[in-house]
Design a protein around this nucleic acid. Sequence first.
DNA 1: AGGATGGGTGGATGATTGTCAAACCATCCC
DNA 2: GGGATGGTTTGACAATCATCCACCCATCCT
Lengths: 108, 108
Amino acid sequence: MTDDERLPQPATADLDLVTVLHALGDPVRMRLLLSYADGAEHSCAPRDLGLEHLHKSTVSHHMRVLREAGVTTTRVAGRNRFVRLRRTDLDTRFPGLLDALLAAAPTQ
Amino acid sequence: MTDDERLPQPATADLDLVTVLHALGDPVRMRLLLSYADGAEHSCAPRDLGLEHLHKSTVSHHMRVLREAGVTTTRVAGRNRFVRLRRTDLDTRFPGLLDALLAAAPTQ
DNA sequence: AGGATGGGTGGATGATTGTCAAACCATCCC
DNA sequence: GGGATGGTTTGACAATCATCCACCCATCCT
């Protein structure tokens, strides 16, 4: 069944700049952001991200930080979770920030 | 004497996005960034910044983090240090980032 | 010279944080 | 039912970090 359910996340109006910057001020999470930049939904498996050296639970932790900061949203479907960048929310709250970040981030 | 001397700081080409974001992912340092946003030189005394509750050395520490991340530059003149935002360097390396940050940051 | 001033250094301490490991939980499939 | 699968939770541990304190170092001024 498509028991669409979203994991808790801050409302758009509650997005805090310092919290977002703190969340992105980590190489692993920046890496995740880049992989989410395509706007598509991603499963949690860190494939082809250069994150294979990290433990499952470590990646899970980083994804939680991103979600709690409001950078990503997570949809639960069955035993899978699909993570997607909250692009429009971020653009609404912090116009131009995401574009600048993605443009400045190390390509690939 | 105008013994102009600059404290060590990373070269423009060496500015690292994650390092900059990490430096700005702290409320005190974000506060400092905002006060530097006018482009002028500032002495180190945290006047009228809502930072009076912090110890001298704590503020000194935060300013060091900003400088080592490449966000600010510090000129030593006598017993004073003058801190200024490295706006053009940041704009060169991360186009649009600073504008987006300053626009999104809590107004004062 | 000697005090006041602007500011940094080094150590100590408590709080966060990144990481792993092991156990756990729900779902899907045979 | 019973594995396998995708992912989270909890605990432990080391590293980093924010903060304070006491002291230090130049410089400026009288």
